[in-house]
Simulated scan of single mutants.
Amino acid sequence: MTDDGIGRTRRALHAVAEHVLAGPQYRASGTIRLRVAPGGFRTWAEPALAVVGDTVVHGATVHPISGRTARELAAACGVEVGAPAGVYGDGGGLGPDDVLEVDPGAARLIADAYARGDAALRLLAPGVEPVLWPEHFDVGVRVGEVNFGVSPGDADLAEPYAYVGVDPVPDDPYWNAPFGRAAPMAELATIDDVWDFFDEGRRRAGQ
């Protein structure tokens, strides 16, 4: 699988997260929070929508994403398309009328990274519900002054990665990213591996 294939899939899923799940949920229920779910992610509140693999699931109906726009998917699900207005400034970059392309293998890779990350975050911070934020499309928690999470990738690191975010970043080679520490999820094969990464970052950050 090429980095470009992962990138197209990530951008497409991000667009669905913003325009089909988070935006309609914000307008109906007042929250932009999403959560990791089997095979992908879902809304936190009404409307009840989920992304599973390369599809959007609405009740008993499954809508393939590839070849369609967020506007078409939203209409098929009976919701108003559009990201949460006035809540954040950044986002995935794709609009409601961009045609989306999802590679099933890349979607599984991202869903698996989210699942391992979500499970490790729950071990790291029991009782804290991990949130998948539609702005940056990462699942994370905050413990004290430190952010922990898993990103599906971005312009700097195309593949899914785990991160520990600190501010300011210490002058120490351990901290290898502008925001703190990052490690590709390909190097963290199990939930325990991800937890170990988070735990080391927490100790080095003095939490």
Rank of each mutant, 00 (worst) to 15 (best):
P64Y: 02
T55M: 01
P24C: 07
G39Q: 13
P134L: 05
V166W: 00
A22Q: 01
E101Q: 10
P64E: 04
P130N: 13
G127D: 02
L21G: 03
V51C: 01
Y161C: 02
Y174W: 15
D156A: 12
H58Q: 11
D118Q: 05
D199S: 15
H14C: 01
I6S: 12
E18T: 00
D167I: 00
L100V: 03
A70C: 13
V36P: 01
A37W: 04
L132F: 05
G53T: 05
L100P: 02
L49C: 03
H14K: 03
P84I: 00
R108P: 05
H136W: 05
I191L: 11
G86S: 04
A189G: 10
V62W: 08
E159R: 14
V20M: 02
F198V: 11
G39H: 11
R203W: 14
P84T: 03
W133I: 04
I191K: 12
R181S: 11
G165F: 02
V143Q: 09
P178E: 15
F41T: 02
V102S: 03
A177T: 09
V169I: 11
G5L: 13
L157N: 13
A85I: 07
F137R: 05
E18C: 00
R202A: 08
A60Q: 13
D167N: 12
A186M: 07
V36K: 00
H14Q: 01
L49R: 04
P160K: 07
V62R: 15
G86V: 06
R33T: 12
A76M: 09
G89Y: 15
R142A: 14
A60N: 14
G153M: 12
V57A: 09
R8Q: 10
G92I: 01
A125V: 14
